[in-house]
Simulated assay, not measured.
Amino acid sequence: MKIPIFTVDAFTDEPFRGNPAAVCLLEDELEEGWHQKIAMEMKLSETAFIRKLHPTDNFTKSSRFGLRWFTPTNEVRLCGHATLASAAVLFRNKKNVNSSLTFVTLSGELNARQAGGQIILDLPLYSAYPQDLQEVEELVKVAVGNINVQDVRYSPDTKKLLVRLSDTYERSDLEKLNVNSQELLQTETARKVEGLIVTLKGKAGGKLESHDFYSRYFAPWNGVSEDPVTGSAHAVLSSYWSEQLGKEEMCAFQCSARGGELKISLRDDGRVDIGGQAVLVLEGSLTI
């Protein structure tokens, strides 16, 4: 069995930046165990599997598809960058004729549309609530050391812990953080937290900076030490920073080694549009 497979760098307009995702196009049903085996082989933060919902569907003409995401260790409920990568493969490689695509996922129906050079994702918006620092003090200490923390929030829907650094710090301070993913795993064993966001207020409006906030994201509980650019984390960050900044339109940058930019627009229906660019860097077939 041969499966068309692509590697797409998401949330960037440059090859080998942003967040790489593998995208598999399934012409036929795949035996359940193979999804995880393929994701382990790809060794990327996510491998996406696009499947037809009906036998007569077509990757060029149909507008609705099933979509699943797997890390090297497990299936996840939401992945923004692999959704963007999936839409990019359908729009640009398969020349899909529709202006908007709908993906049926574990997080419900997600829409993706083209807007100029960007692809806009319609994602759920998740709230993060005040978290007693004492309950997560050891985990926060492992993540940021002696850096001053201004706020700690928890998103129960996503099991993500948001740690905001003091506004006195600069982007370079966030970039220099050396986070030990194994220590995170050893510190948080109850799996209340399955993703750690470290974020910092940006300097939007300045001469050299144009981002409302910065972040880094760590998810060793899902087999991802540090994710380069994370759409699902921004489904939490968008809610938090909109409240903090009083803005519904924002530009964010994830400060991993690869880096990536996200355009954010909160919607009236309680969801969020997250836009970014994508670059196809590899195309081939997988034989199983």
Rank of each mutant, 00 (worst) to 15 (best):
N111R: 01
N111A: 00
N111D: 01
A112H: 03
A112G: 05
A112V: 10
R113A: 12
Q114M: 12
A115C: 09
Q118F: 07
I120E: 01
I120P: 00
I120K: 00
I120N: 02
L121M: 14
L121D: 03
L121Q: 03
L121Y: 02
D122Q: 06
D122P: 09
D122T: 05
L123K: 00
P124T: 02
P124C: 01
L125A: 00
A128Y: 00
Y129C: 04
Q131T: 12
Q131L: 08
D132K: 04
D132P: 07
L133K: 10
Q134Y: 10
E135A: 08
E137S: 12
E137F: 12
E137M: 09
L139Y: 07
V140A: 00
V140M: 02
A143S: 13
A143Q: 07
V144G: 02
V144L: 02
G145Q: 03
N146M: 09
I147K: 09
I147Q: 10
I147V: 10
Q150V: 11
Q150I: 08
Q150L: 12
D151K: 13
V152G: 04
V152W: 01
Y154C: 05
Y154F: 15
P156H: 00
P156G: 05
P156Q: 01
D157E: 14
T158W: 00
T158M: 08
T158R: 02
T158I: 10
K159Y: 11
K160N: 09
L161T: 08
L161E: 04
L162T: 08
V163D: 01
V163H: 00
L165A: 05
L165I: 07
S166P: 05
D167G: 15
T168V: 15
E170N: 14
E170A: 14
R171L: 11
S172A: 12
D173V: 15
D173G: 06
D173R: 13
D173H: 14
L174S: 13
L174H: 11
E175N: 11
E175F: 15
E175S: 13
E175K: 14
K176Q: 13
K176T: 13
L177Y: 02
L177N: 05
N178T: 10
N180Q: 10
N180K: 12
N180M: 07
S181A: 13
S181D: 10
Q182I: 15
Q182E: 14
Q182V: 15
L184I: 15
L184N: 06
L184K: 07
L184Y: 06
L185V: 13
Q186L: 07
T187S: 11
T187M: 08
T187G: 08
T187H: 06
T189D: 07
T189Y: 06
A190M: 08
